[in-house]
């Protein structure tokens, strides 16, 4: 079974062809970073306009990369939730148009489920990797979502949230801290690069919510903001130190909670997903900490962690295997289908 996946939930336009065993036949992603960089973050209307322009060439490029025609595909999967509704609708409607004209099943996919299952993708150009068995505990950390899930199977009903951020997503905190430090957008890669040059011990940051699986990144960002205010003019060295301290605190928080969640659930495998999983220090910390605790860490290649359509195609193939398809009334929504446990906002619980 071969599924065409389409992804337009945020600022990446993606199309991919994936077999239901996880083999990626084509994976094309067109980034919109250059369009949003002048604004310091994703502008929803700009994202929607870029998707309309890019999605046709991206879909055709994926078909060409796989050497296939649309008739060779068994189904069309598309991200229908969660995300920017205007951006999602571009993908959903193009998927409906393709499915209608090609007479193929249409499958709406939850973007977060795509991230949780991305660990099963097998890219032809990367080394063969082991994949986890269910159940596993996964950290999904991106610019829009940060949560830890117990995953008992590929169905959204088999994914249970164990803890999530009460405020900013981890990736959002990286972007905001980068802005505070006068760095460009997106903040994650630049902070990661500068963290290597800095000394984390020179900037004292408290670990937020150390005793819970829930998380808070807004307070961590505020600690950096206060530090910036105290410094006055920032030297290159001071910026690097702040990057190193922020990244160390954020990534150790995420890694600690992920491994603690696995132990709490008595599960022996942890998985990373989402754009923040591209962070070098987070990948290393998860690997090291899990290893110390006798837990296997499955860290997918960076291309599988950031937004891509291959994970959508694979999650769609899993839905199709279960006999699930959607009708022409498939709509886009900003909310995930995964039940949320962590309540947003401050205050006692």
């Amino acid at each position: 079974m071969i599924v065409l996946g389409i992804e337009t939930s945020c600022d990446e336009t993606g199309a991919a062809l994936v077999r239901d065993d996880g083999h990626v036949l084509a994976d094309v992603v067109e980034s919109q970073i250059a369009s949003h960089a002048p604004f310091g973050g994703v502008v929803p209307e700009v994202a929607s306009r870029d998707h309309v322009r890019n999605v046709g060439p991206v879909v055709r490029a994926a078909l060409a990369e796989a050497g296939m025609k649309i008739d060779d595909v068994d189904a069309i999967a598309v991200t229908a939730r969660p995300g920017l509704v205007g951006a999602l609708l571009v993908g959903v409607q193009i998927a409906k148009g393709i499915a209608l004209a090609a007479e193929k099943p249409l499958i709406g996919v939850d973007h977060l489920v795509g991230h949780l299952l991305a660990v099963f993708l097998r890219h032809p150009l990367t080394e063969a990797r082991a994949v986890p068995e269910f159940p596993f505990v996964a950290l999904l950390a991106s610019g829009g979502h940060t949560a830890i899930y117990r995953v008992d199977g590929p169905d959204p009903s088999q994914c249970t949230e164990l803890g999530a951020t009460r405020d900013d997503a981890a990736g959002e905190a990286f972007d905001k801290v980068a802005k505070l430090l006068g760095l460009g957008y997106p903040g994650g890669p630049e902070i990661d690069r500068r963290a290597l040059l800095g000394d984390p011990s020179r900037v004292k940051l408290r670990t937020p919510m150390p005793s819970s699986l829930e998380m808070s990144f807004s307070g961590l960002k505020s600690q950096v903001a206060r530090w910036v205010e105290e410094q006055g003019a920032l030297t290159e060295g001071a910026v690097n130190d702040a990057c190193a301290a922020f990244q160390a605190t954020a990534t150790s928080t995420l890694a600690d909670k992920l491994v603690r969640a696995a132990r709490q659930e008595n599960v022996t495998a942890v998985v990373l997903g989402g754009g923040v999983a591209a962070n070098r220090e987070l990948r290393q910390r998860v690997h090291d900490l899990a290893g110390k605790c006798g837990i296997s860490a499955f860290v997918p290649p960076v291309a599988c962690c950031t937004d891509n359509a291959a994970m959508i195609a694979y999650a769609g193939a899993m839905r199709l295997r279960r006999g699930e398809t959607d009708g022409w009334n498939l709509n886009a929504t900003s909310r995930t289908s995964l039940p949320r446990k962590t309540r947003k906002g401050r205050g006692a619980r």
Binding site: S48, R60, Q93, I94, A95, I98, A99, A101, A102
Partner: peptide, 15 residues
């Protein structure tokens, strides 16, 4: 407008 344009793009890609 994007809904109509995207739908027609999808149809044209397939047909």
């Amino acid at each position: 407008t994007r809904i109509g344009v995207s739908t027609v793009k999808g149809i044209a890609i397939a047909s």
